[in-house]
Amino acid sequence: MDSAEERLKGQEEIWVHMFAFVDSMALKCAVELGIPDIINSHGRSVTMSEIIDSLKTTTSSSSFPDADYLTRIMRLLVRNRVFASKFDQESNQVCYDLTPSSKWLLKDSEFNLSPFILAELEPLLLKPWQYMATCVKEGGFPFKKAHGYEIWDFALANPTFNRLFNNGMRCTAEIIINAVLVNYKDGFDGIGSLVDVGGGTGAMITEIVKANPHIRGINFDRPHVIAAAPVHPAIMHVGGDMFADIPKADAIIMKWIMHDWGDEDCVKILKNCYKAIPKTKNGKLIIVDCILQPNGDGPFDKTGLAFDLLMMAHASGGKERTEAEWKLLLNNAGFPRYNIIQIPSIPSIIEAFTE
Rank of each mutant, 00 (worst) to 15 (best):
M1W: 11
I350T: 05
S91F: 08
S316Q: 11
A30W: 01
A203I: 06
D186A: 06
A227R: 13
E6F: 05
G192W: 02
K255A: 09
H17D: 13
S345F: 01
D260N: 15
K56G: 05
N80W: 10
C29P: 00
K248V: 07
L126N: 10
I253E: 05
R170L: 13
I215V: 11
K86P: 01
E264T: 14
L113H: 06
L329Y: 07
N166R: 12
N92C: 12
F220G: 00
L310I: 08
W152L: 12
Q89V: 13
H237I: 02
H314E: 04
M25Q: 11
A306P: 00
P223C: 11
N40M: 01
F111P: 01
A251L: 03
D196M: 04
D53H: 08
F165T: 01
P65S: 06
E207L: 08
I51L: 09
S114V: 04
W152M: 10
A234G: 05
D153N: 13
T201R: 14
N167A: 12
A244V: 12
I287S: 08
L194C: 04
L106H: 02
P159M: 08
F165L: 12
V16R: 15
F141T: 12
Y131Q: 07
P247G: 08
T354Y: 07
K86C: 07
H42E: 10
I35H: 02
G43Y: 07
L270W: 06
L98C: 08
W129C: 06
N332I: 00
A315E: 11
L121C: 03
E6A: 12
S193Y: 09
P247H: 07
G304F: 00
L329D: 04
V238W: 00
Q342K: 15
E325N: 04
K144I: 02
E351I: 10
G198D: 03
K275D: 14
G34T: 08
L285T: 08
A249F: 01
